[in-house]
Structures are given as C-alpha cells and as structure tokens.
Amino acid sequence: MTSAQDLSALLHRVARKDRAAFAEVYQATSAKLYGIALRILKRRDIADEVLQEVYVKIWERAADFSPDRASPISWMATIARNRALDEVRRKRPVAIEDHPEVQNFASDDETALAAIMRSEDGRRLADCLTRLEPDRRQMVVLAYCEGLSRDELAAKYGQPVNTIKTWLRRSLASLKGCLGS
C-alpha cells in the first residue's frame, strides 16, 4: 500500500513528466479511481474510457497538486468523480432495462467498490461512515458513490440546496477527521 506521502512524492515526479512515477501512481490508485467511475457510470466500458481520461488529466495537471489543500488520493478521486459526472451529464448511458436479453447473464466478478471496501482504507472508511448520522451517511454515499447532484439530494431530502451543501461539507469534514486519527 502506498502512503499519502509516497503518492505526493510520486505526483511531484509526475509533474516533471517522470513516466516511471506515473506508472507507480497508476498501479497504486487505479482500482480506487476505477471504482469511483464505475459506481457513478454503472457501465464498465464507459468507466474504462473515463479512467483513461482521468489519468491523462493527472499526467497533465500533476503540477497543480498541492498536499496542503488535499491528500493525493482525494485530489485524484475528485478528478475521477468530476469526469464521471461530466460523462453522465453529457450523455445518458443505456440502461440495462433497455436490453432485457442481457439481464440473464450473471457475473462472478467482484465489484470495484467491494474490492476497495476489503482494503484497509475501505474498512477504515466504512467504520468512519458508521459514525455519521444515518441520513448524512446515506447522503454522502448517494453523492459520492451514486453521483447524485446537490439539486437531486435537495429534492430527495426536501431541503434547500445550501443546506445539503452544508451537510455534505460537515459530513466530509467529520470523515476526514476520523480517517486522519
């Protein structure tokens, strides 16, 4: 497992166009970033394409990374999440319900999210999530795993968008504090 300090150092090298460092960043983070994209997009083919674009952005924008503003994985996860959400907004993926003939195929593949949650980081995150109030926990999962917008959350919870924004910010701060301890 690569530490945040190691990832920061690798990203600094990537900013200088170090291909070996980039390969190490990819190896250490691709499962997590793919899990984010797949969870939002729900289609492996589109998630594969988005993941490629995410790493192109990481390569191009590595110099923009600042460990004072965010952890390396948070910075990269934000890029992945935003790119996946852009894809959702750009074109609506075809739903499996539109093709009933493929619904009978079962997959034994473990989901990317399940693989992440089995990792030490995933277990720590799951533990920290249980410390949030149930509605806040669900809201965080809906926003950051399912890709719901603040507007969609506001409609779902019957609250103003600014309230949702505040709840998410406080929940994420709580998670950050929990994960940092």
Rank of each mutant, 00 (worst) to 15 (best):
G177Y: 02
A95I: 03
E146A: 15
A154R: 08
K176L: 07
A112S: 12
E53P: 01
R137T: 07
R136D: 15
A80H: 05
P67D: 05
T29V: 01
E60D: 13
Y144K: 00
K17S: 12
L41H: 02
A23F: 00
D98K: 02
R89D: 10
V50L: 08
S3V: 00
P93A: 02
V140F: 06
T130Y: 08
S3I: 00
E152I: 01
L113Q: 14
K32M: 10
L51R: 05
E120R: 11
S181G: 15
L148D: 10
W59P: 06
S3R: 01
L179P: 05
S171E: 08
D18Y: 07
I36G: 04
V14S: 00
A31E: 13
K57Y: 07
L168A: 08
C128P: 09
V161A: 13
T29Y: 06
L129C: 06
S174Y: 12
E146M: 10
C178F: 11
N162P: 05
S66Q: 13
A37Q: 05
E49P: 01
D64C: 07
A4S: 14
E152R: 13
L125T: 09
D45C: 03
A28F: 04
K176E: 15
K156W: 12
R170C: 05
L175P: 08
L179N: 04
K165D: 15
A80Y: 00
K176N: 11
D68Q: 14
E152F: 01
Q159A: 14
E101S: 11
I40L: 13
Q5A: 14
R61E: 01
E146L: 11
R136N: 11
F105Y: 15
T163W: 10
G158E: 04
D48A: 11
M139H: 03
S71M: 12
R69N: 13
K91T: 06
L11Y: 06
P72F: 05
R123G: 10
A31S: 14
T2Y: 02
A95V: 04
C178K: 12
R150W: 05
W75I: 07
K91P: 00
V25C: 09
K32S: 08
A77E: 04
A20N: 12
R137K: 14
R16S: 12
I36S: 01
D6P: 00
I79T: 10
K17N: 13
